[in-house]
């Protein structure tokens, strides 16, 4: 389902070259990538997400080689098939929770998924926030909205970059569990990168960089 082969990356000429182990992920197998800061975790995640071009190697998602797509095709592919969760989830502050989700669906071209929004918000325990603006949400609610934005379009792959780093212990377990459940419900692959040891127990499949 998700394969990376011989990925290496260099920010600028004469910079150190990052090399990454190959990843081979079957259907619905969540993967946790652990590693210290500065080791290139986010870089790897962005390469898998198609936001960065590797120096060498290739990423294949469900049979599509990202490196073979032109930039427009890749934009569309990312929008449709990948969901990103960040440590801090910014959404458009001018829009409400509901409008943000609608915008997300509009840009990925999956407006039909609009009907799933209420159920999703319920599953994430933020069904009461629909008409709230982003700056009215708590940290935990914001992170749940981040998950909603990453899964509402039913992507093939969910990539989470330090999703729990800014959460307390309770919220950390809670949010991570929700993320895993959502990936399962949507039949999406999930890759989480973090230095947060607290979430280790939730994964069988762990890669340490």
């Amino acid at each position: 389902m998700i394969q990376t082969k011989n990925i290496s990356f260099q920010y600028q000429k004469n910079d150190a070259v990052f090399t990454f182990p190959d990843i081979n992920l079957g259907k619905e197998e969540p993967l946790l990538i652990l590693g210290k800061s500065g080791i290139g975790k986010t870089t790897l995640l962005h390469i898998i997400a198609g936001l960065l071009n590797p120096k060498s190697g290739e990423v294949t998602i469900d049979g599509t080689n990202l490196q073979s797509l032109n930039s427009k095709q890749r934009d569309q592919f990312i929008g449709k098939h990948i969901g990103l969760v960040f440590q801090k989830n910014f959404a458009n502050r001018s829009l409400t929770v509901l409008e943000n989700l609608e915008a997300r669906l509009f840009f990925s071209g999956k407006t039909a998924n609009k009907n799933n929004i209420p159920n999703l918000l319920k599953a994430l325990q933020i069904e009461g926030c629909q008409t709230q603006k982003i700056n009215e949400l708590s940290e935990g609610q914001l992170q749940r909205l981040g998950i909603a934005l990453a899964v509402i379009h039913e992507p093939k792959l969910i990539l989470a970059d330090e999703p729990t780093a800014s959460l307390d212990d309770d919220n950390c377990q809670n949010v991570m569990q929700l993320l895993i459940n959502q990936a399962k419900t949507n039949k999406s692959n999930l890759i989480v990168i973090t230095h947060d040891q607290r979430v280790k127990s939730l994964f069988q499949n762990i890669l340490t960089l």
Binding site: G79, F90, N92, R104
Partner: peptide
């Protein structure tokens, strides 16, 4: 100020032109 928001929209599949 909202570069992050705009970058986020790009990951949603929005083109530069949008």
């Amino acid at each position: 100020e909202r570069a992050f928001d705009l970058a986020l929209l790009r990951t949603y599949g929005a083109s530069n032109f949008q």
